[in-house]
Design a binder for these strands. Structure first.
Lengths: 212, 212
DNA sequence: GTCTATAGAAGGATAGAC
DNA sequence: GTCTATCCTTCTATAGAC
């Protein structure tokens, strides 16, 4: 019955994932998870001992999944511009399939910041930066991306892709009211965002701006 | 003792605000709020009947506060460029003083989307757009901001300012690891963001881009 | 491995004295 | 208006039968 064990454990894990993402750690009920999996509460504890254990399993799996989506950008043998375009297309498509994932991850992280160390200890940011520098030294110069402003740039890229999902209720609420469609907006964003980013960091016509 | 009543009720409200923003509706405990206010649980119910009532009072106050921060942009007799600069300076400064507010509002909205109607019913988006069009018809043309892409533009502006606070645990976690400082990052962002936005929407040098 | 029944604790809410 | 004491429900977790 090892086959069956696996199935039950997986069923529990999948149900837990759905419920936790939907209601958060504090709002989720073990009964909801059991019902959703078609079993009883006792079995949850048989497989995962406590709610905390179960939550941690779900959280780490999902957080890992989300951040892995950033990785291909560094491996691909794409031009700098194509990397940007590739990222937005892939990342927004992924989030369309998991629209509540960013809010779940970021909210639970802000409630329990101690989880972060575990999350980023396997993430060697300096190595990634070096890789990018090696691959695109000229592009980085061309676009004026330096060690000083790389955080500004990276967070702007992430913001352009993730924010629509974090603010989905408001955005789609407002859009609905004035005749726009949120799904179309997301499709457009896959090309709008990379164009927006690349123009923002291009070095030309700086003198045209009246910024002080 | 009406003076005293007011004080107690306010003390409760302020404590509730702090606890709810810190722990969310589901994570907050009436006992925590009472302790924080230096009173006992029964008094909470005397003033606000239920946890739901108390939460709603806090939520509506805070949500209103946050969205009101967007308003001055439309009133000011500023140039279009100055409006953008003004917005980021004021909004980021406000969020620096209330760093957990965006996560609180957006997360509770995504848990209870029915709250949205009440929030935006007083917000006449089309009127605002008309106002902006009247004030800056030439600028909107110059920057190619049209009825078609206004949602893309507006959400990009919001994203640039709000996202750093939503993702603060990750951003500051990563930054700490590689020797950057989150507070400095925020200060820089007040000028980085408007420059970024204005360059992104400027019409020149479009031909230089290799976008397909 | 899976179930029913229940322990044990916690949380929201109320009664009633002052 | 404020307090103590307590009710009642809900929730996590476990015991024990099958």
């Amino acid at each position: 019955m090892t086959e069956n064990d696996k199935l039950t454990e997986e069923k529990i894990f999948e149900s837990a994932t759905e419920i936790f993402i939907e209601k958060g750690m504090d709002g989720a009920r073990m009964k909801d998870i059991a019902d959703h999996a078609g079993i009883n509460k006792a079995l949850l504890h048989y497989y995962y001992r406590t709610k905390d254990h179960l939550f941690n399993a779900v959280f780490e799996k999902m957080a890992g999944l989300m951040f892995k989506k950033f990785a291909p950008v560094f491996d691909e043998r794409l031009s700098f511009e194509d990397k940007i375009k590739f990222f937005f297309r892939e990342h927004i498509t992924f989030l369309q399939q998991n629209p509540r994932l960013p809010a779940f991850i970021l909210y639970e992280l802000s409630r329990h910041p101690e989880r972060i160390k575990k999350l980023i200890q396997n993430l060697d940011v300096e190595k990634l930066w070096e890789t990018l520098e090696k691959q695109h030294e000229k592009d980085l110069k061309k676009y004026n991306i330096t060690k000083e402003n790389i955080p500004q740039f990276m967070t702007s890229v992430a913001a352009m892709s993730v924010f629509p999902f974090l603010a989905k209720p408001i955005i789609s609420g407002v859009m609905e009211k004035i005749g726009y469609n949120f799904d179309e907006y997301l499709e457009q964003r896959k090309s709008y965002a990379p164009e927006f980013i690349l123009k923002a960091i291009s070095k030309t016509n700086r003198d045209e701006l009246t910024l002080t």
